[in-house]
Design a protein around this nucleic acid. Sequence first.
DNA 1: CTCAGTGTTCAGTG
DNA 2: TCACTGAACACTGA
Length: 277
Amino acid sequence: MPELPEVEMARRLAQRVAGGRRIERVRCARDAIVFEGVTPARLRRALVGRRVRAAGRHGKHFWLELDQRPWPCFHFGMSGGLHTPGAPGVRLVSQGRTDRTGAWPPRFTKLWLTFEGGRELAWTDARRLGRIRLRQNPRHEPPLDRLGFDALRGLPPPGRFLALTRARGAPVKALLLDQSFAAGVGNWIADEVLYQARIDPRRPARTLSPAEVGRLRAALCAVVTTAVRRGADENRYPRTWLFHTKWGGTPMTRRGERIRRDRIGGRTTAWVPSRQQ
DNA sequence: CTCAGTGTTCAGTG
DNA sequence: TCACTGAACACTGA
């Protein structure tokens, strides 16, 4: 689930539910892995009674900006999500079948917040690769301070993007996944971007021509902004996207192109050799 | 039962 | 020191 578009939806959900409200109650699961460097008692002390001013995000990390520091910071790992009880006009960040049951709080809830007025947020993580931390200044402390430009809001201008890309020797697929390059890009976005830019994922980044880097930048921008505009709802992504056909039993795009799957940059990569030379 | 997986970190290599 | 690679992490669901 959680690449940049899903995390952006979570941020907006947090903003709508919690923005301007005081935190009344904080409940934590017992989990010394997900709560990194924070005991439930300290987290409770930092949050209870605080007012939420806003919700921030960079790449796949997001945080709540409170009227007093430190602030809670969240990363969803492979399987995390943010939920609120189904109130009219409030969109759920879906986490698949485990919470279509409608249970509240959902299965695998790690942090459960109640705000003044009775609104609630639940942060879930089945596989426990996600993290909850406390930070004085999230953007300027680990792990956020090691991130590159945000793929939605911080895309560098063409000249700088070209220089950044050609400074690297890794396969361009690996470069796209590197969070210190483009924060927020995950496996499916990287595949989609390379497909749309018509670039072979194995190519060392420094061998791309200026025209190819231009296509890469344009495709990155298009994929991320479109996914966010469509509410990170895969059913609403354009039909031409590789996304829809990459995992199916039929390894074909709807254009009839053969899809190949290789291990590139440490991840399974779906690509179309006839189109990505 | 086995294996892949929408992610990150860290040890090891050159 | 830097750039890069691959394994480990923890657990679910196919």
